[in-house]
Design a protein around this nucleic acid. Sequence first.
DNA 1: TGTTATTAATTGTTAAATAATGTATTGACA
DNA 2: TGTCAATACATTATTTAACAATTAATAACA
Lengths: 149, 149
Amino acid sequence: MKLEDAIKQTSFKSEDERLIINLIYTSSCIASEQNRFFKQFGISPQQYNVLRILRGQYPNPASVSLIQERMLDKMSNASRLIEKLKLKILVKRSECSKDRRQVDVIITEEGLALLAEIDLENIEMHKACKALNTIEKESLNILLDKLRN
Amino acid sequence: MKLEDAIKQTSFKSEDERLIINLIYTSSCIASEQNRFFKQFGISPQQYNVLRILRGQYPNPASVSLIQERMLDKMSNASRLIEKLKLKILVKRSECSKDRRQVDVIITEEGLALLAEIDLENIEMHKACKALNTIEKESLNILLDKLRN
DNA sequence: TGTTATTAATTGTTAAATAATGTATTGACA
DNA sequence: TGTCAATACATTATTTAACAATTAATAACA
């Protein structure tokens, strides 16, 4: 659906304004698709993000700050996300012996199994990209990188 | 900053995956910039969005459902946002005489004045777009539209 | 006109974003 | 080397938002 129809706005003051609004709206669409997708596995997109970071470190532990700096949303509360994952037995948390300020967070077998299960269906989640061909995907990636500067 | 550096990930499984993550990350960057910008005026980006919709209707009232369908995030709670704006005397809310289920929401003089004040500095908010030229902005807009299909 | 379906909005609940606080470690300097 | 300030790390508190469930009013129709 065209942006103008989706938010029932007939015109924009400038291409800049349309771009900003388009980006926010598009990412909100993708975010709600992702929420729906991950719900069947009992986790949120942010929790999935944390699990992936932990798998990247496995079998080594990760500190909360390491997780935080790798997260997509730097401002979100890593402590609370880890707590939620721990309640679901998807991660383990233990005091770090070298530095008592830190905690060692490690993904569990259950956590790895869940990620493996998700990956199988993950291709579905990327179906949003079907509408674009390879050249278009590449240029979108490049343009987004450039926009952030 | 390049996406890989920003989230400390060396590679992605596919261009699709990189695209999805890039989009989420980029929109999160823009969202936090906007939060920062609007904070000086005591409102959130979503509240700004509601005020703009109300200005579009002014001097006619708008119902909560009309506001909701024009919002960028359809699932967010328009009732509560309006309540927050009412506490700041930026909108008025009154029972609709024709249909007692509905409420008439109208932007106040104070609300219009705040929007006018914001618009003056609004150009600053679009500085993110400075990194792209006109052609690039247009193609980014087109690609985002296409992605949502 | 009584019953059910639909529409409108609010309230409740859960989760996430941001701010503030607490605690451990490091480093500077007497 | 003992003390204090600065820093780093994480947690807890607060605000805000997302989504679900509920309440109330109107419309539709037998």
